[in-house]
C-alpha cells in the first residue's frame, strides 16, 4: 500500500483551563488518527464539542497538537518546525464555516485570490489577472471580471463560499479541509457548493476532509466517514457501510436524529435520559448509552475491527464475536 496523502497518527490537543496559575488542562482531542487519500472525501461527523473543529485547526496548522504525528505525503511535518512552513500552506488549504466571516470586508474578491497566488508564486504580475479570472470561472462565478471587482458584502452567502473555495484552490493544494462549508448557507445554495467540492476530487485528485454535523450530506459526498465523540473516534469506515449498519450506539443515535421521513419525530431516540457526567476512565458515551454496563464505566473500550476498514470503539463489539452481527436493536 502506498503512503497516504495526509496521515495523522494519535493527534491530541489539550487546552489550559482555570485561572492564571492553574495547571489544569482539558482534553479536546484524544489520540485521533486518520488518513486521507488522493481524490478521496472523508467526512468527520459529531456533535458540537466533539472536537471536529479542533482537529480541523490542527490539520490546517492553525494550532499545534500536544502529541501525535502528522505526515504529508510521507514526510513528518511536525518535526523541527514550530510554525507551518510555506510549503505546507501550499499543499493543505482550509475552507471555513462562515463565509460572512472568512472574507475580509475591506478587500475585493480579486485581492483575496491574488494574495495566495503571489505568496506561493503560482502567478506572476503579468498573468495575475487572468489567473484570478480563471479561478473565479472554475468555481462558477461568471462573468469573472465583474465578480473580481466586487467586495464581499456585494455577494450572497453561496457566492462568498465559492470565493473562499477559489482562494483555497489558488495555491493548487493537494488537501482541502472544509469545516462545515455549507451549514451557514441557504439550502438551494448548499448543493452547488457540495457539488463543487465533489467535482474537485474527481477532476484534480484533491483529497477533502469534510467536517459536518449533517449525516445526509456526508452520505452523499463522502467515501469514508469518521464519527467523533468527546474527542475520540468512536466509529470509522466506508460511508455506505457505517450508515447502513452503524455499530456504535452513538452512531445509531446520530442516525436516528436526522430529520428524514414523515414519522421521524415518532420514533424514540436510542438514548438514556438524565445523563450524568462522563466517567473519568471509561467510555465517554456510557452515561447516555442504552446498552452500557459496568465495564463501560470502568475501562476505555479498545478499537475493534469488525470488518476491513471498519473501526468501532465499543465494549459491545467484544461480546458480539462474529463481525456480521451488526443489527443492534435500536
Amino acid at each position: 500500500m502506498s503512503t497516504p496523502l495526509l496521515e495523522a497518527t494519535a493527534l491530541s490537543r489539550t487546552v489550559p483551563v482555570g485561572g492564571f496559575l492553574s495547571r489544569a488542562r482539558r482534553t479536546l482531542l484524544d489520540k485521533v488518527s486518520l488518513t486521507l487519500e488522493r481524490g478521496e472525501i472523508v467526512a468527520l461527523v459529531g456533535e458540537s464539542g466533539s472536537g471536529k473543529s479542533t482537529l480541523a485547526r490542527l490539520l490546517a496548522r492553525l494550532d499545534s497538537p500536544d502529541g501525535g504525528s502528522l505526515r504529508l505525503g510521507g514526510t513528518d511535518v511536525l518535526a523541527g518546525e514550530k510554525r507551518a512552513s510555506l510549503a505546507y500552506r501550499g499543499r493543505v488549504q482550509m475552507v471555513f464555516q462562515d463565509p460572512f466571516a472568512s472574507l475580509n470586508p475591506v478587500h475585493t474578491v480579486a485581492y483575496h485570490l491574488e494574495r495566495p497566488l503571489l505568496r506561493h508564486g503560482r502567478a506572476t504580475a503579468a498573468d495575475l489577472t487572468s489567473r484570478v479570472h480563471a479561478l473565479l470561472e472554475s468555481v462558477g462565478l461568471t462573468p469573472a471580471e465583474s465578480f473580481a471587482r466586487r467586495f464581499p458584502h456585494e455577494l450572497s452567502g453561496g457566492q462568498r463560499q465559492r470565493v473562499a473555495v477559489a482562494r483555497a484552490l489558488a495555491v493548487e493544494p493537494d488537501v482541502i479541509i472544509a469545516d462545515e462549508p455549507t451549514s451557514m448557507l441557504d439550502v438551494s445554495t448548499r448543493r452547488g457548493v457540495l457539488q463543487l467540492l465533489r467535482g474537485l476530487t474527481r477532476e484534480r485528485g484533491i483529497g477533502i476532509l469534510f467536517i459536518t454535523h449533517d449525516l445526509a450530506s456526508a452520505r452523499h459526498l463522502a467515501d469514508r466517514i469518521l464519527v467523533l465523540y468527546a474527542g475520540r473516534v468512536v466509529e470509522a469506515g466506508r460511508t455506505s457501510e457505517v450508515l447502513a449498519a452503524p455499530r456504535h450506539p452513538y452512531t445509531q443515535l446520530l442516525l436516528s436524529a436526522v430529520p428524514d421521513g414523515a414519522d421521524f419525530l415518532h420514533t424514540p431516540l436510542p438514548v438514556k435520559a438524565g445523563a450524568g457526567p462522563a466517567p473519568p476512565r471509561g467510555c465517554a458515551f456510557a452515561p447516555r448509552c442504552p446498552h452500557a454496563d459496568a465495564r463501560c464505566h470502568d475501562t476505555l473500550p479498545a478499537e475493534h475491527l469488525p470488518a476491513a476498514d471498519h473501526l468501532v470503539r465499543c465494549h459491545l463489539e467484544s461480546s458480539k464475536g462474529v463481525p456480521d452481527d451488526a443489527a443492534v436493536p435500536s
Binding site: 510555506l86 501550499g90 475580509n104 495566495p116 473562499a164
Partner: peptide
C-alpha cells in the same frame, strides 16, 4: 478570532 484572520494564516501571510 474572526475567520478571515485564520484564513490569511492558512494562505501563508
Amino acid at each position: 478570532n474572526r475567520d478571515f484572520v485564520a484564513a490569511a494564516v492558512v494562505v501563508g501571510e
